[in-house]
């Protein structure tokens, strides 16, 4: 059975346990971005049995007919998943996916370097922190932050709102130290910058490495994201794939996994076994109330080109 996952996104000893228990050999590969994974599956050169796309990518793959339907009867352990996270817009009936991990987009900051309250996106435009701000080198996330600052939706299709977001990103550029993706958390750990836009899972890792760091997300609006587990069309071992997804959702395994990778789990039984100080922290396990203004990315279709043009303008500015 072939599993295709993000780098560092599973406790690999779980793969071995699965092999021993079911007698199914697991071949495990990793990718760095949704887009890398999409291109590889789309080109058809490889046949994976289990993949882990994010919400908007799941929608795109679902719309393009690239996914097999899940048979939930073969995944009895799916009953442990918090109903709060089922039936989301990206897959309304959970026909194609089950949530794997979830989180928010927020601000990781160094408490020694930042003395203002971090409660809104505006702090990323504060000249006091010039050349100490790390933004994400990812068009949807960075334009999303600008849209949120302006009070617009992160899924806007309105060209005027996008232009306005582009303008404030250009204004912000002199304050930005760098646009990064994976290096960002390491830069924060080594104290190279004061503020960084990160995903909550990366923040958990960085705080573990450097206790001076803290994470929060503005309650005025953020991106709520899900990484899900799905089976791509063309999978050769659909039965084994279901067994594997069920295995991932077995309470003891789900707990071991989330304990290892440190992201927020949608699995209730696993969450109950985690230390209270983690699961009670509203920045990492926000309640529905914290997420009133949070939005999930939707697939933009052709408007994505407009995002790209704005982002290129910002980068070339």
């Amino acid at each position: 059975m072939y599993v295709y996952n993000w780098g560092d996104y599973i406790d690999e000893s779980i793969l071995k346990d699965f092999e021993e228990e079911y007698g199914i050999r697991v071949v495990y590969d990793t990718y760095a971005t949704n887009e890398d994974m999409y291109v590889k599956i789309k080109s058809g050169g490889s046949t994976y049995d289990v993949i882990f796309p994010s919400d908007y990518m799941l929608t795109r793959m679902r719309e393009e007919g690239m996914l097999e339907k899940l048979d939930l009867e073969k995944i009895p352990n799916s009953k442990y998943i918090d109903p709060r996270f089922l039936g989301a817009d990206y897959d309304p009936n959970n026909e194609y996916s089950l949530p794997y991990m979830w989180g928010t987009l927020g601000i990781l900051y160094n408490t020694n370097l930042v003395d203002d309250p971090v409660d809104s996106w505006d702090i990323l435009w504060n000249p006091k922190y010039a050349k100490q701000i790390l933004m994400l080198d990812s068009q949807r996330d960075s334009i999303g932050v600008a849209l949120l600052k302006l009070g617009y939706s992160i899924n806007t299709l309105n060209p005027d709102e996008l232009v306005a977001a582009g303008e404030i990103l250009k204004e912000q550029k002199p304050l930005v130290l760098a646009y990064v993706v994976d290096e960002g958390k390491d830069k924060m750990v080594s104290g190279e910058a004061a503020l960084a836009v990160v995903w909550s899972g990366d923040a958990a890792y960085a705080i573990e490495e450097n206790p001076d760091l803290a994470y929060t997300f503005p309650r005025t609006g953020t991106n709520l994201w899900f990484d899900v587990v799905a089976i791509p069309k063309g999978a050769k071992n659909i039965d084994a794939a279901h067994k594997f997804i069920d295995f991932l959702n077995r309470p003891d395994i789900a707990f071991r996994n989330v304990d290892h990778i440190g992201y927020a789990t949608p699995h209730l039984a696993a969450k109950d076994q985690l230390p209270k100080e983690i699961t009670d922290d509203p920045d990492f396990y926000p309640t529905d109330e914290d997420l009133v203004n949070a939005e999930v990315f939707v697939n933009l279709g052709a408007t994505l080109k407009e995002y790209d043009r704005i982002w290129t303008e910002v980068k070339a500015h």
């Binding site: 080198d137 550029k173 130290l177 760098a178 646009y179 290096e183 980068k315």
Partner: peptide
Amino acid sequence: SRLLGGGQFT
């Protein structure tokens, strides 16, 4: 340009 330029110079 991405690593050393911090992604600022497309």
